[in-house]
Design a protein around this nucleic acid. Structure first.
Lengths: 225, 225
DNA sequence: TTGCGGCGTAAGGAAAACGTCAAGATCGCC
DNA sequence: GGCGATCTTGACGTTTTCCTTACGCCGCAA
C-alpha cells in the first residue's frame, strides 16, 4: 500500500490507521517520489492526493497505469466535478473528497481490493514450473525458453483458461467463446483439444496437473499448487 | 443496465442520458421490482437509490450480491458516513451523493464497468475454520490450501447453502433448485448427498458443525459459531 | 416392546462424461 | 492440383457420477 500526499498530517493519520489494520504502508510526499516508490515496492493499492506540489495528479495516475493495475483511490480537496471525471477516466478506481472519514476510506479500500483480487488474471504473463504463457504475445514457451507451437483453436482454449487462472470455466463457456453460440453441445471437441493441449504442455499428459478436468462442470487451469 | 429509484424525475433523467450513450436501460421504482427485474434481465450494471419506499437499500444490495457480481453504484441523499460504509461493505462498488452531476455519474459508471470487465468476477469467498468456499471459482479448499473436489450435484447443494449462510434452506427448495420441479418428494437424495458433503468437508462428519440438519425442515449452513 | 417416520451410512450397477486413437474433411498456400 | 497443417468426426475403452437398494440408528407413540 502506498500513500502519496503532501500534507504531513494526513500521511501520518493514514499510516497509523492503516498499519493498525495490517497493511504494509509506504508513504511519499510528491508525485515523483510516489512513482519511484511504486515502481520499487509494487504496492497493491495506491492512495493518491491530487494536489501535489510537483506534478498534476492525473499525470501520476497515468504514470501508474502505464504498468500497474493496482487500484488507485484518489483523495482530493477539489469538489469540482470536472476533476473527478478526469481522475476516474485516467484510470483511478475511486474518488474521495477531503475532508473524509477514516471509516469511509477504509470501506472504499475494502471495496477496491475486493474487486482487484481477481484482476490479477490480467497479467500478461503466467508462468508455471514447466511452461510460460505470454498472453500479449500469444506465445507459450518451454522451461528452456523454446517456443511450443499451438494451433489457433488450442491457443484460444489455453488463453481462456489461463486468463481464469484457478477459476472453473464451464464447457459451455469454452464452446461458445471459441466456436460460437451454436456449438454448446459439441463437448467432444473439448475432449479432443484438451488432449492435444495436455500432450504439448503437461509434464505427464495422462495425469494432468495444470489443465484439470472437473467432470460434469468444465475445466480449470491452475498455475500453482 | 438497471436503474432503481423511486423519484420519477431521476429515473427519467437517467434513462434519457444513458440510452443516449447506448446503454440498454431498465428501470424500477422500488426494491422488490428492482430485484425481480435484475433476476430476469441480468443487467451488467445496477444504479441503486438507497432511499426506497419498500425495503432498505442495503437489503437490496445483499439480494443482488446473492447471485450477481455486476457492479452496483449506489445513489443516495444521505451524507452520513455510516450509510456509505454499510453500502460498500454489503457489496456496492461505488457511492454517489445526491445531488450529483451527470458527468460524474457517467465517469464512475465507466470506471465501474472498466473494472468489471477485467475483473470479470469479483470473487465471493466464504471461509470457515476448516475450509474455504470460493463461489466464483467453484472451488473448495482445505485449510492447507489443497483442493477438495466436489461433484456437480454436491457443489450445487453446497453453493445454495453457502449463499444462504446462516439461513435455513428447506428441503423442497434444495430439491427444486438442484434436481427440478418434479423431485420435491425425493428427500432421500438429500440425505445421501449431505452425507457425502459432510464426509468431505466436516471435521467430524458424524457431528456436523457447518452443514446442520433442521429436522423436518431442511438444512442450514453456518460459517461461524 | 413393537412399529413407524425421519435421518444417516454404505455399496454396487447403470448411465453419463471423459480420454484416446485414428481416419476423413477442410482450408490455405505453394 | 498437390501438400501440410488444422479441424471435424467416429469408435471404443476408461473414469466419474448418479441413482437405487439395503440396512442401522434414534425418538416417539401406540
Amino acid at each position: 500500500m502506498l500513500v502519496v500526499d503532501d500534507e504531513a498530517s494526513i500521511r501520518r493519520a493514514l499510516r497509523i490507521n492503516l498499519t493498525a489494520r495490517d497493511y504494509t504502508v509506504h508513504v511519499a510526499e510528491d508525485g515523483r517520489s510516489g512513482l519511484r516508490s511504486a515502481a520499487s515496492h509494487r504496492p497493491d493499492v495506491v492512495i493518491l492526493d491530487l494536489g501535489l506540489p510537483d506534478m498534476d495528479g492525473v499525470e501520476v495516475i497515468r504514470g501508474l497505469r502505464g504498468w500497474s493495475q493496482s487500484p488507485i483511490i484518489v483523495l482530493s480537496a477539489r469538489e469540482r466535478e470536472h476533476d473527478k471525471v478526469d481522475a476516474l477516466d485516467a484510470g483511478a478506481d475511486d474518488y474521495v473528497t477531503k475532508p473524509f472519514g477514516m471509516d469511509e476510506l477504509l470501506a472504499r479500500l475494502r471495496a477496491a481490493t475486493r474487486r482487484a483480487m481477481s484482476a490479477a488474471a490480467d497479467e500478461p504473463v503466467v508462468a508455471t514450473e514447466h511452461f510460460t504463457v505470454e498472453l500479449a504475445a500469444k506465445r507459450v514457451t518451454d522451461v528452456t525458453g523454446r517456443e511450443i507451437r499451438l494451433t489457433p483453436t488450442e491457443w484460444e482454449i489455453v488463453e481462456l483458461l489461463v486468463r481464469n487462472d484457478g477459476r472453473l470455466v464451464s464447457s459451455r463457456q469454452i464452446l461458445t467463446q471459441v466456436w460460437g453460440e451454436g456449438y454448446q453441445a459439441e463437448t467432444h471437441y473439448l475432449r479432443v483439444y484438451l488432449a492435444q493441449i495436455r500432450r504439448k504442455l503437461e509434464p505427464d499428459s495422462s495425469r494432468p496437473r495444470y489443465f484439470r478436468t472437473e467432470p460434469g462442470m468444465g475445466y480449470r487451469f491452475v498455475s500453482s499448487g
